[in-house]
């Protein structure tokens, strides 16, 4: 869809982004207070915060990956499947090379090697997406739709469709541990990844080029930017984050399967949009996405505390929130434009 159709208003300047983040923070605070009032006894407990901190990193990482590709004007529908493929392969390696009864040193080496392999697989899958989008020219939604099937299919072939369990004990033990007895390892992994991507986007040449590519690919090409390479890098980064999410899912469930977390695809797109990433590319940042992840986690946790509300109501809520956010952003854009023209 050409820009004129999907984005009637394009605001110059950088204040829009910051304003978006402020708005998200305000929403976060309001939701937090709302939750605290609704369920003070269950919500305001340290254990609740700890369990929330263990839940959101996996889909948070996927959301950041999707957001990165949306910044380039594309989308990545295959993140969940990349994560699962990476996890499945890592699990296979762990079980084959460190069977029960291996020495601790050997087990540790194998576990680390398997994790490195998973990250490599993630980056490779992402590179495939990036090449399909840039060198072959398949629209991102179709390319990643195709690789979604492909990666999931490969994971099914590797596992014969069954979950792989019986991983070395130390993997889940360290994966689910808290640092200093309070900060879950997975939260730390999420924080570090988000920080790295945030710095990449806002403080490096790579980030600046990525925004340029997303705002206007033609202009970026004529400005001498190696556009194809940039697409590949963006999708590789998304694949890498997906692999990290896959490793986290594997630690949480202590197993790997071809179709874990399928609903995360929709959810991570929703989070990216909620976080202010424009689906047409060129606008959005990591802070916004992280704020959106936290808001969604609060909503989801507090909904869980009402026992008589079916989980499926969450779907209705997510849908309404996503469309609502789109409409609110639209109205704000229209208002700002009117002010500018006055």
């Amino acid at each position: 869809m050409p820009e004129t159709l999907s984005e009637p208003v394009r605001r110059p300047g950088f204040f829009g982004r910051d304003k978006n983040f402020t708005r998200l923070l305000a929403i976060f605070v309001l939701v937090f207070i709302g939750c605290a009032i609704l369920k003070p006894d269950l919500f305001l407990k340290a254990s609740n915060f700890q369990s929330m901190a263990k839940q959101f990193p996996e889909f948070g990482l996927l959301s950041i990956g999707v957001a990165l590709t949306m910044l380039t004007g594309g989308i990545d529908l295959s993140v969940v499947n990349i994560g699962n493929l990476a996890a499945v392969l890592a699990a296979r390696v762990m079980i084959s090379f460190a069977p029960k009864g291996s020495s601790p040193e050997q087990t540790l080496t194998v576990v680390v090697a398997a994790m490195v392999l998973a990250l490599f697989v993630g980056a490779l899958c992402g590179a495939v997406n990036g090449l399909l989008v840039s060198k072959i020219g398949i629209p991102a939604i179709l390319a990643t739709l195709g690789t979604q099937q492909l990666f999931m299919g490969l994971a099914i072939v590797v596992t014969s469709g069954r979950p792989i369990s019986g991983l070395p004990m130390i993997y889940a033990r360290y994966g689910n541990r808290n640092i200093f007895g309070a900060v879950p390892v997975v939260l730390a992994v999420f924080a570090v990844s988000a920080l790295i991507v945030g710095v990449l986007l806002s403080r490096t040449r790579f980030g600046a080029k990525l925004y340029m590519l997303g705002s206007n690919a033609t202009a970026a090409r004529f400005a001498g930017i190696n556009v194809d390479r940039l697409y590949v890098l963006a999708y590789m980064l998304s694949g890498l984050l997906a692999a990290v999410a896959g490793l986290i899912m594997m630690a949480r469930s202590n197993s790997a399967k071809a179709d874990y977390g399928i609903s995360y695809t929709m959810q991570s797109i929703l989070i990216a949009v909620l976080g202010g990433v424009s689906p047409n590319g060129g606008r959005g940042n990591v802070q916004g996405v992280v704020a959106a992840v936290l808001i969604l986690q609060l909503l989801s946790s507090v909904l869980n505390m009402f026992e008589n509300i079916s989980n499926f109501y969450r779907d209705i809520l997510w849908g309404i929130v996503m469309i609502g956010v789109l409409i609110i952003n639209y109205l704000i854009n229209v208002r700002d434009l009117r002010r500018q023209s006055q």
Binding site: M1, L5, S6, E7, P8, I75, I141, M266, I269, L270, V273, P279, N280, S310, N311, F312, Y313, R314, D315, I316, L317, W318, G319, I320, M322, I323, L326, I327, Y330
Partner: peptide
């Protein structure tokens, strides 16, 4: 309406309404 009135990307609109419709189907109607 959402696509034509606001000119949102159809992919996002229909993803959102999918979530709502299936939520109604399994949540509200059980």
């Amino acid at each position: 309406f959402l696509v034509a009135r606001f000119r949102f990307p159809a992919m996002l609109v229909t993803l959102g309404t999918t979530s709502v419709f299936s939520g109604i189907l399994f949540g509200a109607l059980g």
